[in-house]
Design a protein around this nucleic acid. Structure first.
Length: 264
DNA sequence: GGTAATGTTAGACT
DNA sequence: TAGTCTAACATTAC
């Protein structure tokens, strides 16, 4: 589930497992996933090197390599994961890229649906989506957030949250969670969201993402995420039933009672 | 066996 | 021009 909190945990995992280890070889069973470079060059560039550091931008994981300016960048698509395991153990059919280290371990990029992307670039801004990406939600100021809202008055609020060019890292699941927590109906346009709700939205963006990162995605039943597509009960009132509708082209779960269109 | 799926993007449409 | 909608990508899980 690679939205901001998920990629944040991939970053931690990557840093704990894969820094400062010499790369012995690189394998790729799905070369279409590699952008901006061909596999042969990627393999050549990485072999003998090691990772120095890693950081996150939106839903991208950016891995810095010792001694060269190029960075290995992952985007996880809809179904991505990282596994650091001992070589030759438990073959994984969804491992699309495998980085083998000299210590007998390897890092596997899994991508069931093959929607992940791999880049090797000197400057992350060579990737169009990163270049155009909006600010990081965990650090954006209220003033900047408000300004970006103002620039998209006519836009649907869920579509706004999903668009990486407005704010980075929010995807379908967390946009629902954020709107639920702010008690905003997902059908609303930004111009119909009142001052009080805008305030709540700003806080909700921060707390939802911050808490998801902090709890390492161990969600208790106060989260919408636990009920969506399952028991469909509202976390705030078990007599309320969640509704599923397609909004902004995606499956959207919300509580019509708590998130009334008339709220302001 | 039909359907939906945590992302992104291009192109058509209003 | 701006925003919305749909399909496509490729594949699995239920």
């Amino acid at each position: 589930m690679p939205e901001l909190p998920d990629v944040e945990s991939f970053k931690t995992y990557f840093k704990e497992s894969s820094l400062d280890k010499v790369i012995a070889d690189v394998q790729c069973s799905c070369k279409d996933l590699i952008r901006n470079i061909n596999f042969k060059d990627l393999r050549h560039k990485l072999t003998g090197k090691s990772f120095r550091d890693a950081w996150r931008r939106g839903k991208f994981l950016i891995c810095e390599i010792k001694d060269i300016p190029e960075k290995l960048i992952f985007h996880f698509g809809m179904t991505g994961d990282l596994h650091y395991v001992k070589q030759n153990t438990e073959e994984d059919r969804f491992a699309r890229l495998v980085i083998k280290f000299e210590n007998e371990y390897e890092l596997r990029l899994l991508s069931i649906r093959k929607l992940a992307k791999i880049y090797l670039v000197k400057d992350p801004e060579e990737i169009k989506l990163i270049k155009e990406m909006g600010p990081e939600p965990l650090t954006i100021s209220k003033k900047d957030f408000s300004k970006i809202l103002d620039e998209h008055q006519r836009k649907n609020i869920k579509a706004f949250l999903l668009d990486q060019r407005n704010i980075a890292g929010i995807g379908n699941v967390y946009s629902d969670e954020i709107l639920f927590k702010a008690k905003i109906n997902p059908h609303k346009n930004i111009e119909t969201v009142g001052l009080e709700q805008r305030e709540k939205l700003y806080k909700s963006v921060k707390t939802v993402l911050r808490e998801a990162v902090d709890c390492n995605m161990y969600f208790d039943s106060s989260w919408l995420i636990v009920h969506r597509g399952r028991d469909m009960r509202c976390p705030l009132n078990k007599n309320h039933k969640l509704k599923k509708e397609i909004i902004a082209g995606r499956s959207c779960y919300f509580c019509p009672s708590c998130q009334k269109y008339e709220n302001h």
